[in-house]
């Protein structure tokens, strides 16, 4: 699934909210064993935040790194499973807030945690066909986990945005190709009108997460004639810590190659932004010439795999916007009561 013309990443940006709740604080409320806490802590959106405000900040950072006039962006694709409006696009608010010209292809996309990378892939197609020059792909989510559910420990919040451009030395990275693998596998879902999603417990593992990521990664490597040892970094969708570590091992990546992009232990599962923030964290540290494998996973189910090669421009552009680490370090811990308030879990009427 390689476009006839090459594309690259001109700019990238992330957003992670300032609030954190520790896994042990959630476990305290529900009386769960500490040994059963999947991650250390997760990010929580503030009262005045939603996936739209997240997308605006991540995109602002991406544009800052890209160094282009927002009016030059001709497509905004937003992937999210937590839009504040069920009907009314996020993309239009983002575009208007950032001064992106109304001469624009704009759409919201939903495919659980995979929607952001599919947005990237779609933009790649538009750029490669020369239909547009620059496009903005966003993954943004403020995920809700049902109180007491397993997912409450990990359902987190974050956003990442990538500006895709025609291949050029201006780009911070070159996209060698992508590969998608999709089947009808219902491992996690949220019916219309429901606040919280449901999932099929252990069924979310082998037939869903592992199968799709494995097939997409292998498919990509086969098409590009690459093997895992050709990659310097690998980033996978990270619903917890265990899953990405296990799939990395299965695909032949040592811990060394996944640690820079593996953030779920300290920010949680940021859904559509998860693998994209991981990629951004790798771009924050990678050197020109290094190759990165990114594979997302969205329940329902599908995976997008990308092979990305870092270019020289990364060195000068990296510092033009906050790093992933800057957002991770700036944090405020809240207890479960405040968390419940911030996530609108307390009835006031």
């Amino acid at each position: 699934m390689k476009p006839s013309k090459s594309t690259g990443i001109l700019g990238y940006g992330v957003y992670i909210p300032v609030y954190r709740i520790k896994g042990e604080e959630i476990a305290r409320v529900w009386g769960r064993s500490k040994a059963a806490i999947p991650i250390q802590e997760k990010s929580v959106p503030g009262l005045d935040e939603d996936s739209i405000t997240f997308a605006v900040e991540a995109s602002k950072n991406a544009i800052q790194r890209a160094g282009i006039n927002p009016e030059e962006i001709e497509a905004v694709y937003v992937g999210s499973e937590s839009p504040p409006y069920a009907v009314k696009p996020t993309a239009t608010v983002v575009a208007e807030a950032l001064g992106i010209s109304p001469r624009l292809i704009a759409i919201d996309m939903e495919f659980a945690c995979r929607a952001g990378t599919t947005a990237m892939q779609s933009i790649m197609g538009l750029v490669a066909s020369s239909m547009i020059k620059y496009g903005l792909a966003i993954g943004t989510d403020t995920a809700q986990g049902r109180p007491r559910d397993e997912l409450e420990y990990t359902a987190a919040a974050g956003a990442a945005a990538f500006i895709i451009a025609p291949h050029s030395s201006e780009n911070i990275a070159y996209i060698e190709g992508s590969y998608s693998y999709v089947t009808d596998t219902t491992d996690f879902w949220r019916r219309d009108g429901e606040v919280y999603p449901r999932h099929a417990y252990r069924f979310t593992g082998e037939p869903a997460y592992f199968h799709h990521i494995y097939e997409a990664a292998v498919g990509l490597m086969e098409e590009l004639g690459l093997k895992s040892s050709d990659f310097d970094y690998a980033v996978f969708h990270q619903p917890n810590v265990k899953f990405p570590v296990r799939i990395a091992k299965r695909l032949g990546f040592p811990m060394e190659k996944i640690k820079d992009g593996l953030l779920s232990n300290i920010i949680g599962n940021t859904y559509a932004a998860s693998s994209m923030i991981g990629l951004a964290a790798v771009l924050d540290v990678a050197k020109p010439g290094e190759r990165i494998l990114m594979v997302s996973f969205g329940s329902g189910a599908g995976s997008d795999a990308f092979s990305i090669v870092v270019q020289d421009a990364i060195e000068e552009k990296r510092r033009l916007a906050p790093l992933v680490r800057d957002y991770i370090e700036k944090r405020k811990y809240i207890d479960y009561a405040v968390y419940a308030r911030y996530r609108s879990k307390i009835k006031t009427r």
Binding site: L47, D48, D50, I52, T53, V56, E57, V93, A97
Partner: peptide, 16 residues
């Protein structure tokens, strides 16, 4: 920073 200011009720528009 771009944020929510208010909502026109639970089912109304969000003002940023």
């Amino acid at each position: 920073v771009f944020r929510r200011y208010r909502e026109q009720g639970e089912d109304g528009i969000i003002e940023y």
